[in-house]
Design a protein around this nucleic acid. Structure first.
Ligand code: FES
Ligand code: FES
Lengths: 140, 140
DNA sequence: CAAAAACTTGACTATTTTAGTCGGGTATAT
DNA sequence: ATATACCCGACTAAAATAGTCAAGTTTTTG
């Protein structure tokens, strides 16, 4: 039950932006240096963040990325969604007629996994990017 | 963010046992047929459940497995633990001196992931196997 | 204008993890 | 005896993941 690194880095990078942008664009190069994440990897991640309207870009010298929403408004669930990091603890589709084992009825554990998904998703729904910044001592 | 099938099948199989055992041992063959899980795979799973004292076995004809605790007492977290399905949403070790990016201080997001782990683990801690059986209509 | 900074994009690959199988056991009830 | 059912380590194919590469385009600044 692990989160993939793409999502982890995305949250990390956006948190970095929230701290270090002073209404300026933040370049991936700077984030890469501060957070120790590969620049090439960040590019790939920000491509998706941009496509999903989490950030907007400024090209050219002194360019970089800018958060579209304020950290107080940006939900962690928005970030994960942008990276296709769905919280689906099992493969069985909620709306499909087929159960996880190919039978026509839902299996004995189905409702339980549904509850789990809701439990986890609500955590991400209720957390804002700004919530991560509260104890700034923890920052690098 | 997915649960692996081993854990999923383990919960499913144990729920099956809770429903169909009448103080008798339940054979893997029966579980396999009822739940549509490969017998060979079940054997591998129950090996671990046995080693971790979730079930005990009865060999020979009419043998099978028996739940050690009652479904009311068996926590889902116990089951996951038996299968090494740790809920560790990131790789960073809690107690280690090293952060996720190799630096000596904890990264900006560290506490957040810790909270997430606690959130998910408490869900599994508070659910008992018997909780899955409440709406028996859902069973196959 | 030239050059550097920085974003854009798709494709590509090595590694790791996962899911599931195989083969050859051993114990026990009837 | 023999069928049933647990025991156990090793093995493999397929999928997911993490991360790289190559070849751009755009904009600022000297
Ligand atoms: S039918 Fe949905 S999890 Fe089994
Ligand atoms: S230091 Fe623990 S998650 Fe980054």
């Amino acid at each position: 039950m692990k989160l993939n690194t793409k999502s982890r880095y995305a949250v990390m990078a956006l948190a970095d932006m929230a701290v270090f942008s002073n209404a300026n664009a933040v370049s991936l190069r700077d984030i890469s240096l501060r957070q120790g994440i590969s620049l090439l990897y960040l590019e790939q991640i920000f491509l998706r963040l941009k496509k999903n309207n989490i950030v907007k870009s400024v090209r050219g010298t002194n360019g970089g990325y800018i958060l579209i929403k304020s950290p107080k408004e940006l939900k962690i669930s928005d970030i994960l969604l942008a990276l296709d990091q769905k919280v689906k603890t099992i493969g069985c589709k909620k709306d499909s007629k087929k159960s996880c084992n190919g039978k026509s009825t839902k299996c004995i554990t189905h409702n339980f996994w549904d509850e789990l998904d809701i439990h986890i998703n609500s955590f991400f729904e209720n957390k804002k990017l700004s919530d991560l910044l509260k104890n700034k001592e923890a920052r690098i």
